[in-house]
Amino acid sequence: MKKKKSIGLLADQKFIVLIIVVILYVVFSFISKDFRKYSTLVMMLDSTYYILLLAIGVTFPLITGGVDLSIGTGMICYGLTGGYLVVQRGYPTWVGLVVAVLFGLLVGILNGILIAVMDLPPFLGTLCTCMMTRGLGSICANSFAIPWPGAKAEGGWFHNIFKLTMGAGRKAMNYPVGVIVLAVIVILMSFVLNHTRVGRYTIAIGSNKEATRLSGVNVRAYHITAYAISGLFAGLASLAYAAAIPTIQPGTGAGIELDAIGGAIVGGVSPTGGAGSIIGTMLGVFVIQLLKTGLPYIGLEANWQQIVTGLVLIGAVMIDVIKQRREALEG
């Protein structure tokens, strides 16, 4: 029995995805000299950061069998709102950060209420909040494009937290704070998913909601929590986005959720709920980001990114469907 499980670990999607990540990196590096550069790696990691945060957050609603489509436009909306306070109104940076994160949390809770209490289909409820945050972002920022303080500027300290490196080379003084922060977040959320009630019930809701309810679990509260986590992480991601992109434009953000959700599903989160892992999600995001970053280096223009991401997502779900069909036939 035990032996069977360890073999199962080898056949685990996480492991396969890890191999794909390595292969992709090697192949792209082999083809393109520029891709091999350290600066490319840094650039890629920096622009992956916010997607990682989004993906970790959206893993929770996905595991409940739902989805959160509002994270992309939401992230922009929170970043705009926080940034507006800092840049246009002169509040200290930390106020902007806190407001962005709280705003995210709030929208997350609203999503949770729409889905868990009002019983709207998850894709529809969050599609509505997706559009609403898009409008809200422009309104909150007075339709300004918002440049958060730069890394070197006053109040730009938050860059250190959300960038993997400072990008200026490998000086001993440049601790990769971002890596450490990210590692802490991944470990923390893995713990939450696997060893706390929030995680346990998130999985249980995705697997069999009615049975969970009949077991005396306050399903609504935990269902809302899953969406709240997603919103909270979209709030955090908005800070990472501000750190990576010099100016946040209102009206953007649609499509970013695809990278995050696609990453999670490539990483083994079941699109019908009940299964998934934080590590898998992280690796899945790397697959998608490698493809996106790598394509221009092998001669495809950047617009191919969206097409490829879509195809990868569909492909990942198809593999899942094939697996399920085979299991159904065997069982």
């Binding site: 894709f123 699109p271 191919w304 969206q306 991401t309 879509g310 997502l313 198809m318």
Partner: peptide, 27 residues
């Protein structure tokens, strides 16, 4: 085809198609 024959959840198909449509048009 994806929804009916592959039982891919419609929202995933929509999300992918939405971005693919944008990408194809831009290309």
């Amino acid at each position: 085809y994806l929804v009916a024959y592959w039982t891919v959840p419609p929202f995933i198909v929509s999300m992918a198609s939405m971005n693919m449509a944008k990408g194809i048009a831009s290309v």
